[in-house]
């Protein structure tokens, strides 16, 4: 059954990364806020949920929700000093914030176990279902993705979503039409944080073990690759990107087992491809595989 197991693992990862990529897409694709530290939100969700469940013995549902809230709160916090600044400053501040969260996880051993990581993270309903647990978890992830996709689509189709696009394309104009752009930026960072935190929490309970190694900047670059390849300001694009990049990433790791160049070089080669893919897409097909859809209002009035 290894192939079947591997496939289920791959599809579960599609789901987790689809959530993660959608959270970035909301910030970058819709609102134009360049976030190079999205992994921090993922890590916060993962650690908060894992620690609350493992160390405080809280129910998993509470852990996941707390993980989302922690990460959403972090989004507000990060947006606060930078909300009136240009995108370059967002980029560097978020990048740095991502590193600080990782340093915290690495250094505060009393809380996070440092480099050893958090082990034996409980899984939802693990006693009840055992034989087909990974199928169950995959279905769970699938449902979460569907719900989040629906909610995000509702948001991006709403006047709120329109405000985001206006900030992205013409911030001055939005201000001149009375939009409180700073507040909207804080909101979008919070929502992006909630979703990324959810992805992180689900990741933690799936992997059963997390350590700072899971939350390297590499993860942020991967999801950037996903939204650049898949297409920004389009949630389907984010999901497609997650599938494409994740397939490439996981399958090359698989191949790496059979090619005698060592895992380090293999992973370097893999990241070169992803970097070049990002550059070439931005030059030759900047809109990505699935372009942003034009919003029209069929004659209903």
């Amino acid at each position: 059954m290894p192939i079947a197991n591997f496939t289920i693992y791959l599809f579960t990862m599609f789901g987790i990364y689809a959530l993660f990529a959608m959270s970035l897409n909301l910030q970058v694709g819709y609102a134009g806020l360049v976030n190079f530290g999205q992994v921090a939100f993922f890590a916060l969700g993962a650690y908060t949920s894992a620690l609350l469940v493992v160390k405080a013995g809280l129910p998993i549902a509470v852990g996941i929700i707390a993980g989302m809230l922690a990460s959403g709160f972090f989004g507000c916090l990060l947006a606060w000093p930078t909300k009136s600044l240009k995108s370059d400053y967002w980029a560097i501040t978020t990048l740095a914030a991502g590193e600080v969260i990782r340093l915290f996880a690495l250094n505060e051993k009393w809380l996070t176990e440092g480099p050893f990581g958090v082990m034996n993270i409980p899984q939802p309903l693990e006693g009840l279902i055992d034989k087909y647990y990974n199928i169950f978890y995959f279905i769970f992830v699938l449902i979460v993705v569907a719900v989040v996709y629906m909610l995000l689509s509702m948001l991006t189709d709403s006047p709120f979503g329109r405000n985001l696009k206006a900030i992205r394309d013409a911030e001055d104009l939005s201000k001149s039409l009375g939009k409180n752009t700073q507040k909207i930026k804080v909101q979008v960072m919070a929502i992006g944080g909630l979703v990324a935190g959810l992805a992180g929490a689900i990741f933690a309970h799936y992997m059963v073990y997390i350590s700072p190694e899971n939350f390297r900047p590499l993860e942020t670059f991967l999801i950037w690759g996903m939204i650049i390849v898949g297409g920004r300001a389009n949630n389907r694009g984010a999901i497609l990107g997650a599938v494409v990049i994740q397939t490439f990433y996981v399958s090359t790791r698989f191949v790496g087992n059979y090619v005698p160049i060592g895992s380090d070089l293999m992973s370097a080669a893999r990241m070169i491809v992803i970097g070049l893919l990002m550059v070439s897409f931005l030059i030759f097909r900047p809109e990505g595989l699935l372009r942003e859809r034009k919003k029209t209002y069929p004659d209903e009035v």
Partner: peptide, 10 residues
């Protein structure tokens, strides 16, 4: 800017 990020990774 985003291109330079991709370039940096490469």
């Amino acid at each position: 800017m985003i291109i330079t990020m991709g370039m940096g990774i490469a």
